[in-house]
């Protein structure tokens, strides 16, 4: 047996899942697609007493428009979002990011919200949510709350999720007219964790970039427009502002250089997509 023992509960309804999470307190974890959690269980880096499977809950399976947002339920698999016919039109940045995420086989199982809950600092979906200034809808047995992406990601694999709380859905702001997007990533191999990934969002008057894989969480910065001579200086400041560290995959210096170069390239691609 790879994982440590746990009780497995397949919840049929949201109430059933929330009751189980409430009763187990901090000892329970939600399992959705399991593509981040099961490796953690197999390596015994996670040892929950109870796993609450939410994938049979019909209410969590939706992708729908909600005002200017696209609301994606906690049961929506990455492959389902990838195949959503409106994806390129409504969420072009997410459409660019998804092919970088794991492999065909893992996207067939893994969920959008599961990747957010796992909060790997180099992950593409948390990066996209930060870049687009989205928000996460959380729920316990007793109350619901909505937290901005900035406030949700607290650090390496750490989120604002409280005991007994689960993600019910995520809101990604849909493409606004006159907005361009760019996405780039460097990793050892395609599908691996990113050494550095960059998402850019541009309008005629503003530009911002978000960066994953460098600091302990994805972070977003406003930057000068690409025609402005201050862009390289701004990217250099961001590179130093991020808490880059050496690890087995790359040095902090290399990551800072990626922020500068990949940052500029991604902003230029967003500008081209705008034009």
């Amino acid at each position: 047996m790879k994982p440590a023992a746990f009780d497995y509960l397949q919840a049929a309804t949201l109430d059933e899942a929330l009751d189980a999470l409430h009763e187990a307190g901090g000892d329970a974890r939600v399992i959705a697609g399991g593509q981040s959690l099961v490796p953690m269980l197999n390596m015994r880096l996670a040892r929950p007493a109870v796993l609450v499977d939410i994938m049979r809950i019909e209410a969590l399976q939706k992708i729908e428009r909600s005002g200017g947002d696209i609301l994606i339920g906690a049961g929506v698999r990455q492959a389902k979002l990838e195949a959503w016919p409106d994806l390129v039109d409504r969420l072009p940045l997410v459409a660019m990011a998804l092919p970088w995420l794991g492999h065909v086989q893992t996207r067939a199982r893994g969920t959008v919200c599961g990747s957010l809950a796992h909060a790997d600092p180099s992950a593409e979906l948390p990066l996209s949510l930060i870049a687009l200034r989205g928000s996460v809808h959380l729920r316990t047995k007793r109350k619901k709350r909505t937290v901005s992406a900035e406030d949700f990601f607290l650090g390496m694999m750490a989120t604002d999720l409280a005991e007994g709380e689960m993600i019910e859905a995520v809101s990604f702001p849909a493409r606004a007219d006159g907005t361009g997007y760019g996405f780039n990533e460097i990793g050892r191999r395609h599908g691996d964790f990113a050494i550095t990934a960059v998402a850019a969002v541009m309008t005629e008057h503003s530009a911002s970039i978000a960066i994953a894989g460098v600091d302990d969480r994805p972070r977003r910065f406003d930057v000068p427009l690409p025609g402005n001579s201050g862009l390289d200086d701004a990217l250099n400041e961001i590179a130093w502002d991020l808490n880059a560290r050496d690890d087995i995959h790359a040095s902090a210096r290399y990551r800072r250089e990626l922020v500068r170069r990949l940052g500029r390239r991604t902003i230029e691609e967003a500008a081209a997509c705008l034009a």
Binding site: Y8, G34, P39, N42, T106, A108, R109
Partner: peptide, 11 residues
């Protein structure tokens, strides 16, 4: 196609 090492039998 899925990877059977990260799916619980119960799932």
């Amino acid at each position: 196609a899925v990877k059977a090492c990260t799916i619980l039998a119960a799932q």
